[in-house]
Amino acid sequence: MNIGIIGAGLSGIVAARDLTRHGHTVELIEKSRSVGGRLATRRIGEGKADHGAVYFTVRGEELKQDVADWQMKGWVNVWYADPYPRYVAAGGMNALAKRLAEGLTFHLNERAETVTTGAGQVHVRTDVTARQYDRLIITSPLPQTLDLLADFPVDAALRGLTYAPTFVGLFEFESGVTIGPDGILDTDLAPGMLKIVNNRQKGVSATELVSVYMDESWSEEWYERPDEDTLCEIERLLQTVTGSAVIQSSQLKRWRYAQATDVWNESFHKLEHYPIYLAGDVFLEANDASGRTRFESAYVSGIRVAEAMC
């Protein structure tokens, strides 16, 4: 089959790998300039900073087997364990996405604009061209997915799922700054702060780059304010931890759909009567005890939706 996948985040990449191994022709459409989605890393000067997923954990056997292979290849390593291992990617989380996507066909900087069906195929119109597929998987955040499927009968409960935004401030320090014993603080922080990460201590950066993640309620409150004001406030809060350490530069990243506030209790969803499948981290297996979106839920969703097509 000729299969299209909208969204080249982890779910899309995992699904594409499995479908390609089974002999299908697969291509990914990605609106950004890189694959990975929230496996995101930014280069700042001589350093690198993760500003999406901070780390990932492993519960299920399928991911455990893949992670063992990734460790042998030097793609990932254990950052710290408290009480279970937190894994990070060598060179930043986006480096893992790029390694997993090697050999796949993808179209970057191309935004899907409409999805229609006819003559037994799914038609995707992008801002670049028109593409046709036998099957289509959509892995973008649900609000974006549902915009594409506005004319399709989608379960009303799916349309009711909501997402919260997150701001991430990226700060380059002139000299050494220590963030906790392992490079992360996520307790006893100023109101609004979710976690602070030193990417050098994490093993990602050669320089002092600190990522500051703000919580959902703070990010909602500040989302419509000017970026400059938002970044200044995050810097002020960060200095309650770093004191007089000198900040050399700063940047702001906003994730509009950072975290689903609800989840869907199946690992993917097929539209009734249409060869269109929805997947991504919001789609959790029914026995998933965590009840929240994460790296592993995206990974498992990609596997399951590929299995359904093979």
Results as ranks from 00 to 15, higher is better:
residue 181 P to N: 09
residue 195 K to P: 00
residue 122 V to C: 08
residue 108 L to A: 13
residue 62 E to C: 01
residue 181 P to W: 05
residue 181 P to A: 07
residue 99 R to C: 02
residue 71 Q to T: 00
residue 172 E to W: 10
residue 163 Y to V: 12
residue 62 E to F: 02
residue 92 G to K: 00
residue 127 D to T: 09
residue 126 T to H: 12
residue 82 D to A: 12
residue 130 A to E: 11
residue 105 T to Q: 11
residue 159 R to G: 10
residue 196 I to G: 01
residue 68 A to S: 12
residue 122 V to S: 06
residue 135 R to I: 06
residue 106 F to C: 09
residue 177 V to K: 11
residue 166 T to L: 14
residue 186 D to N: 12
residue 137 I to L: 13
residue 166 T to C: 15
residue 141 P to N: 10
residue 184 I to F: 03
residue 136 L to Q: 06
residue 183 G to Q: 02
residue 190 A to V: 06
residue 89 A to R: 05
residue 183 G to D: 05
residue 127 D to C: 09
residue 179 I to L: 06
residue 153 P to S: 14
residue 159 R to Y: 06
residue 151 D to S: 15
residue 91 G to D: 07
residue 120 G to K: 12
residue 88 V to L: 07
residue 96 L to F: 07
residue 143 P to F: 00
residue 165 P to H: 04
residue 110 E to P: 08
residue 140 S to F: 04
residue 64 K to F: 04
residue 108 L to P: 12
residue 191 P to E: 03
residue 161 L to R: 10
residue 136 L to N: 02
residue 140 S to Y: 05
residue 84 Y to L: 06
residue 186 D to M: 09
residue 90 A to P: 02
residue 71 Q to C: 01
residue 120 G to T: 10
residue 194 L to F: 10
residue 95 A to R: 06
residue 90 A to S: 11
residue 118 G to Q: 14
residue 67 V to R: 00
residue 180 G to M: 09
residue 81 A to D: 03
residue 69 D to C: 04
residue 99 R to Y: 00
residue 159 R to P: 03
residue 77 N to P: 04
residue 108 L to N: 12
residue 192 G to R: 01
residue 114 T to C: 07
residue 80 Y to Q: 09
residue 108 L to Y: 14
residue 118 G to R: 15
residue 94 N to R: 15
residue 90 A to C: 11
residue 107 H to K: 04
residue 166 T to K: 15
residue 194 L to Q: 14
residue 110 E to G: 09
residue 183 G to M: 01
residue 94 N to D: 08
residue 185 L to E: 07
residue 66 D to R: 02
residue 169 G to I: 03
residue 191 P to G: 05
residue 60 G to D: 01
residue 195 K to L: 03
residue 191 P to D: 01
residue 145 T to Y: 04
residue 110 E to C: 12
residue 60 G to K: 03
residue 176 G to T: 07
residue 178 T to E: 13
residue 125 R to C: 04
residue 87 Y to H: 00
residue 159 R to V: 03
residue 81 A to Y: 04
residue 172 E to M: 09
residue 129 T to Y: 08
residue 163 Y to I: 13
residue 68 A to C: 07
residue 191 P to S: 05
residue 111 R to Y: 08
residue 140 S to H: 06
residue 196 I to F: 04
residue 182 D to N: 13
residue 89 A to W: 00
residue 193 M to N: 00
residue 74 G to N: 07
residue 123 H to R: 15
residue 70 W to R: 01
residue 109 N to C: 13
residue 124 V to L: 13
residue 130 A to M: 13
residue 176 G to V: 06
residue 162 T to Q: 12
residue 142 L to K: 09
residue 83 P to S: 03
residue 176 G to Y: 08
residue 108 L to H: 13
residue 132 Q to V: 10
residue 126 T to F: 10
residue 195 K to R: 14
residue 82 D to L: 12
residue 79 W to Q: 02
residue 84 Y to E: 05
residue 182 D to K: 13
residue 114 T to Q: 12
residue 78 V to C: 00
residue 182 D to I: 14
residue 126 T to D: 08
residue 185 L to S: 04
residue 103 G to I: 04
